[in-house]
Structure formats: C-alpha cells, structure tokens
Design a binder for these strands. Structure first.
Lengths: 346, 346
DNA sequence: ATGAAAGCGCTAACAC
DNA sequence: GTGTTAGCGCTTTCAT
C-alpha cells in the first residue's frame, strides 16, 4: 500500500497537519521539522494523494479536452485527419508545462459519459456546436471553459477563442482567384459549428463583392473523401461548372480532385482546388492540394494558457496578436508560390 | 454549488445510501424508489462526484499515458513527428469507448510532476527507457501498467507489448537490398530504448548474414533533421560510401537525403534511403522517402484494451495476431511498388 | 510552530 | 429494501 500522510506523521513524530503544511507550503513549519518530514517522506516513498487533495480543494489538476467533431464520428478517427491529434498533443504538452494533466473526454453533459469527465478543473471545447449543451452545464456550475471557435448560437465573448475562419477563408478564395479561378464553388461540412458557418458567410460576402453567383454544396464531415467525390460530380455536371473549388476539409478536397480527374479535367489547368484545413489527404494527393494550415499547435498553446489563467483567477495572457495560420500553397493551384509548401527545414 | 448526494437524498426522502445504490447499481433498490431518486437527481442536476467516488473506491477512471520520447525533448514536439500524436489520439478514443479518460502526463516518478499523474488507474508507457524509473515505482505500488515496447534492461514479460522492431527492421533492409542496395548503413537515435536497441541488433544480424560490414551512426533524436544531415555527410565521405541508408526516424532520413543531394548523389539512383518510422518528413521530402508505418492507431487500441483488462482483472484480450505494421514504399527507393505509397482510398 | 478535530462527497459494512 | 455508521486521505480552522 502507498504511504499516507499519517504514516509519515507518525514516523516523523509530528502531526498530519505539519506534514500537510510541509508539502503544501501553506502553514509555517520550522525548517528543521520540514527537513525531517521531507526525509521521512522520501524513505517511505510518500507522495500526496491527488484525489484526496482534490476532494478537499476541489482542484484536481486536470484540464478536460472535448473534441466536438469526434462526437459525430462513429468510432475511429478518419485516416489522415491530424488537426485534432495535433491540437490534443500540443495542448497536453502545454498543460503539463503548467502543472496540469490534459484529459481527452467524451462530452460530459451526456449522461452515459464517464463521471470523471466532470471532475476536470476546466474545459477546452473545440468547435462547439450550436447551443452546446456542455457549455450550458459548465456555465450553470461555474466551471471554467474555453471554446476554441465560437458557439454559433451564442454571442461572442471572451469565453471563445477566435479562430478567424472568415479571414482565412477570404485569403484562400483570393488565392484561388489570383491563380485563375473565376467561378469558385464551396463545399462545406454539415456540423453546426462556427467553422462551417463563418466559412459560408465569408464565401457569400466574397462572391457578392465580386458579383459572382455563389454555389454552395454540403456534405457531412463523416462522409469524408466520398462526400467530396459526390460533391465534385455534382459540381462538374453543372451547366456552368466552377473552375475553382474550396472545400472545408482536406478529405473533401481529395474527393473533388478525384471527381475532376475522372471527368477528364486537369488540375490546376481546368480546375483549381483548395482546402480550408490541412490534412494527410491534401499532402498525399497528386497533385498536392493547397490548404490552410490552422496551426493547431499554436492555437492549443494559446487555449491552454488562457484556460489556465481563468482557472487560477489570473489575468488572461497577452493576446499575442491575431490568430495565426498559414496558407500552404501546393500544386493544385499552381500559384506563384507552387512547390514551396511542405515542412520547414532543419 | 453542485448538488450532493445528500441533497438528493433529502429531497427524495431517502438515505444517501439509497441514492448511492441507485447510481452505482450495487445494492438493491425498489424500482419505484429508484425512479423517484432519478427524477429528483435530474431536477437538481445531480451527478455523482468522481473525485469523492475515487477516494473511496480507489478507481478514478483515468488511464495515464507517458510518452517517453517527449521527456528528452526540450519543449515542443518537433514539427512533423506524428507517431505519438496519432498514438495518443487513438488511445484516447479507445479509452473513452471503455469508459475511461486518457490523460497525457509527464513522468510521475519525477518529484516535480503534477500529483494527479500518480492517481491514474493504470499507465501506458511508450518506449520505456532502460530500467525505467516509473516502472519501478508502479511495480512497487502494484499499479497496473503496460509498456509499449520493451524496457531494454528488463526481461520481456507480458507487461510489455511487442512492437516487432526486429522483424520490421529486417523487412526494410530486405527492401533496400531488393531495390539495389548493396552496402547498407544504419543511422540510429540515442535514446536508450528497445526501439533503437532492437533495430541495431536486427541490422547487425542482417549484415552478418550477408557478409557485409556494418556501418552504424548515432544521432540524438532531438537533433532531428540536422542530425541526419551530419550523419549523411559523414557517410558519403567514407572511402566506401553506402548505397543505401536506413534511418530510425523520418527526420534523420530527410537529413540524409539532403546531404546526399548536396553531394550530387541521385536518389534512388546512387543512394536508396528509407526510414524506420513514418512522419511528415518522409512524405514531404522530394523524392518521398520509403518508411515503415508503425500503425500507432492499432498499437494504441491494443495497448488500451490490454491495460484496461489488467486494471479490471479480466483476461487479456485476444492477441489478435502479431503486431501489425506496413512498409510504405515511396520514390526514394523506387522499388517495384514505387508510387503506391500514400493513404488508403475512399 | 505545532496539533486536535471536523469535515470534503461518497461508498461499504452491517444493521433493521 | 432501506438506513446507520464509519471512514477513504487530505486540508483547514482554531486552539495551544
């Protein structure tokens, strides 16, 4: 059995209180006593129990990460989707640096979710859905949280990190136009999140400003590449087919690309294709597909810093400028920068 | 404040025990009573507190994941390394399916690690180091764990998942030979784990069997692509330079590739290059680099299933055959399959 | 500077 | 079937 605070207290000839103070640094303990306690603790291999401590202090030292798009998925993460994995990995590292563990949990507002889910000190919710039930729950219980991306049905507050989907979308659209696209279509996902909503809004504004007729298709995120494929077929069958297509996901873009080639269209000669999020699919396709890199690593670090500040009642970290992202230009649009895409050196 | 079991008990006119039984399903509660309790709980928004429950039952519902190679890293995950991210993501999903949360934690045997780290019900340790201190600690405290990869200094037991590095290494070496390599060099990492050790052993056996002189270089994993680059320079400066190089990491392989081209060597004409682990670098390099896909997703699922079985005292899951992996053949070796690499369709 | 005692919210014996 | 009674390991007043 693991040593308890009592074991240490007895062996060191002090009370549990003193041991507690020694480790928490809260009370005042004589230096000599402190040393003796530490020594005994080392001998016994004692480490304070985080659960018991958590029961008293209501602080477990764990951040919960809820990845909304995983909830719509049936079971496994689709091959090649690495945005969330990268986000989770970077968030975990950032959490650990601040003395927290990071736990990936299923929606704790669902009754059948593991109870531990609710015990986290705070939550990161990536791409909340409209009127996200978890946000309602956390708000009611006064549990700190941070949405990465807005709840599309709630007002924008500092409870949400701006991921600048509109600016990003506009930039990709501009790139498609600059490289020769004149009729740009949009393929969206169906999850009711701000990412889809903002991309659509930006697209509509962009086409309106240029006097183009918008063409928007929707395919469930879960349909993956196959969804993109049917979207592509539908687009290229139109009387006035688009000569450029922006897809929200890399998988959809890969599907559109396949549909284009099946129809004998050359890419990027006849059609330019770009994706609103980078993934294995955009990199592996031939030609490689231009995509927006949402920089999940930086986003995650910012999110963790902000959430931890909120939990600890500190001031939020410096905004560190607007959200960061990068357009990775690849062969599918053959812009002036084609071929520069890829990973940074060294 | 969140409702407690007492609040529910009072309001439902029963004792806390009955409420407890209602939710844990342990005791026997009259159907009518159960319904009433559930109803009151719903009204009050009561959910059992996982921490208090954990204090009693010594079961938190959390698996800890310790990624050893992250410990050698200074701060952030190097760009392009996705093995561990994929492993972590898949493990988290698998854990959640079994009612557990998955928490990425820094080595809990370190004194300065967050205390919550030790509170996990069991641990997954990827690529344990020699005489891994965490394994000593967990063994002493009888905490279930599973090494993903062996502890190179401890005897192989069922506490470790076999990742078949030797078979995999041999297969890549065979591929290099089949595509024209006659003098194959090996670039290893320096972490004292079974992955490096087994790869070297397999290489030495393979060269010995073919009567070749082994050439082994070591570069710290942290040196990344730069380390591979200096290794490549050293190799190609030899009197009898290799015509094939196997690197443990994709980053090293990318570095060797760069060194080869700088020296005017053609790939795969003069030199064939392959990597023992896939990463963004092997996919993004030009030519693309052949690599072993360690299938972190499957490995993670197997690992979680095994660990959970151990925690719950159940029989381990069916071994499901030998560990799985795949050689992703790419342009850098121009074998008979060249060009087939990439992601599965649909 | 140190200790005694009262819980944190829940579960597990054991009555009834 | 349901309630009573002790705690789980720790922190936290409040004495001393």
């Amino acid at each position: 059995m693991r040593a308890t605070i009592q074991d240490v207290a007895r062996r060191a000839g002090v009370s549990a209180t003193t041991v507690s103070h020694t480790f928490s640094g809260h009370g005042v303990v004589a230096p000599g006593t402190r040393e003796r306690v530490r020594e005994v603790a080392r001998e016994l291999g004692y480490r304070p129990d985080a659960i018991a401590r958590g029961l008293r202090s209501n602080r477990l030292g764990v951040l919960g990460l809820v990845v909304r798009p995983l909830d719509t998925l049936d079971t496994v993460l689709p091959d090649g989707v690495d945005y969330f994995l990268r986000f989770a990995g970077s968030a975990a590292l950032a959490a650990v640096e601040r003395g927290y563990g990071l736990m990936l949990v299923p929606d704790p507002s669902q009754d059948d979710s593991p109870a531990i889910g609710l015990a986290c000190d705070g939550f990161l919710i990536t791409e909340p859905v409209a009127n996200d039930p978890l946000i309602s729950l956390l708000t009611r219980d006064c549990v700190p949280f941070l949405g990465v991306g807005q709840d599309p049905a709630r007002p924008m507050t500092e409870d949400y990190l701006d991921v600048a989907t509109d600016r990003l979308t506009t930039e990709v659209l501009d790139h498609l136009a600059e490289t020769g696209g004149t009729r740009v279509a949009l393929v969206l996902g169906t999850d009711p999140n701000a990412w889809n909503r903002d991309a659509e809004a930006a697209y509509l504004a962009w086409t309106a400003a240029r006097g183009q007729d918008p063409v928007v298709l929707r395919r469930a995120e879960t349909a993956g590449q196959a969804g993109g494929h049917t979207a592509g077929e539908e687009l290229f069958r139109l009387a006035a087919p688009p000569d450029a297509v922006l897809c929200q996901t890399g998988r959809q873009a890969a599907g559109v690309l396949a549909a284009a080639r099946e129809r004998g269209l050359s890419v990027p000669g006849d059609v330019r294709i770009a994706a609103g999020s980078d993934s294995e699919h955009t990199r592996a396709a031939r030609p490689t597909i231009t995509a927006a890199d949402l920089r999940p690593d930086r986003l995650a670090r910012t999110a963790v810093a902000t959430l931890v500040a909120r939990i600890e009642g500190a001031a939020p970290p410096e905004p560190a400028g607007p959200p960061d992202y990068a357009l990775v230009v690849r062969e599918s649009t053959a812009g002036p920068d084609a071929g520069r895409g890829g990973i940074p050196g060294a």
